[in-house]
Simulated scan of single mutants.
Amino acid sequence: MTSYSYAKVDRHDHVTVITLNRPEVLNALHGPANRELDGIFRLFAEDPDQWVAIVTGAGDRAFCAGYALKSVADAGVELPPGGFAGITARFDMVKPVIAAVNGFAFGGGFETALACDIIVASDDAQFALPEPRVGLAAMAGGLLRLPRAIGEKRAMEIILTCRRVSAEEGRALGFVADVVPRERLMERAMEIAASICQASPAAIRASKEVAGRLAADEPLSRAYVLQNEAPAVAAMLVSPDLMEGPLAFSEKRTPRWSGR
């Protein structure tokens, strides 16, 4: 198994668990950590045996406190092609990614969670985009994704006041899928991942690409046409799993997905 300096990577069958591992600074990330995570997500995307990723934070205080401000003061903001945490600018990621948010998700940490497909939060989790209070703006996607997730006016109040949002409020607003006690957080995230893995990986990737990208970016009439041209949809139509699903159903057995 590859050893990393700023993250831990564990694989459980078809699920990759990525743990941001800088608990001494509330898992705040700097240039080297972002580059390392960019490589981790690239390997996950390229591995046909890994179908779902879960991102969480080490320690008992934070998911991620954002970009390490001391590093910004010393070296400026350094982001790899995949963006903050290697994920916020990875728009070609068609595999599902779950954020298991334990504690603070501030700045880039909140942006990392918003870049994931599903957010599960511990009951003590808090979210915020406080960048303006230190002279910055949430330019790793937070200013774009939060309004799309909860609506412009509600997002503006959170963005402009820089206030903290609790896990329960996040669920009420709609960007958090589930809130659980901290001790159940990873168990719940793994339950969701396992449920996703019951379906055809090719069909899941096609569903994510259409629902996550086309539905958000295109008018309905155009998206309806373009969905047939989406790369993940084309891949699904030539996947051996396209025949395996109906065959397994007719034979009354569990499908044996190839993942390809």
Rank of each mutant, 00 (worst) to 15 (best):
10 D>A: 14
11 R>A: 14
12 H>E: 14
14 H>F: 03
14 H>Q: 11
14 H>I: 00
15 V>Q: 04
17 V>G: 05
18 I>L: 11
18 I>R: 03
19 T>C: 08
22 R>S: 08
23 P>T: 02
23 P>W: 04
24 E>A: 12
26 L>W: 12
28 A>G: 14
29 L>R: 06
30 H>I: 01
31 G>A: 13
31 G>D: 04
32 P>S: 02
34 N>I: 01
35 R>S: 10
35 R>K: 11
37 L>A: 05
40 I>S: 10
41 F>E: 04
43 L>D: 14
45 A>M: 10
47 D>I: 01
48 P>H: 10
50 Q>M: 04
50 Q>G: 09
53 A>L: 13
54 I>C: 12
54 I>W: 11
55 V>S: 09
60 D>Q: 14
60 D>R: 13
61 R>M: 12
63 F>D: 09
64 C>I: 05
65 A>C: 10
65 A>W: 14
65 A>T: 05
66 G>Q: 01
66 G>S: 02
66 G>N: 05
68 A>L: 15
69 L>M: 14
70 K>H: 13
71 S>Q: 08
74 D>L: 14
75 A>L: 04
76 G>N: 08
78 E>H: 13
78 E>S: 15
80 P>V: 10
81 P>L: 04
82 G>N: 03
83 G>P: 01
83 G>Q: 11
84 F>Q: 09
85 A>F: 07
86 G>C: 09
88 T>E: 11
88 T>N: 04
90 R>L: 12
92 D>H: 10
93 M>T: 00
94 V>F: 11
95 K>G: 06
97 V>A: 09
97 V>H: 06
100 A>D: 07
101 V>T: 07
101 V>M: 02
101 V>G: 00
102 N>C: 08
107 G>I: 00
107 G>T: 01
109 G>N: 00
110 F>L: 07
111 E>G: 01
112 T>C: 15
114 L>H: 00
114 L>W: 02
116 C>F: 08
116 C>I: 00
123 D>Y: 03
124 D>H: 11
125 A>C: 00
125 A>I: 02
127 F>V: 02
128 A>S: 13
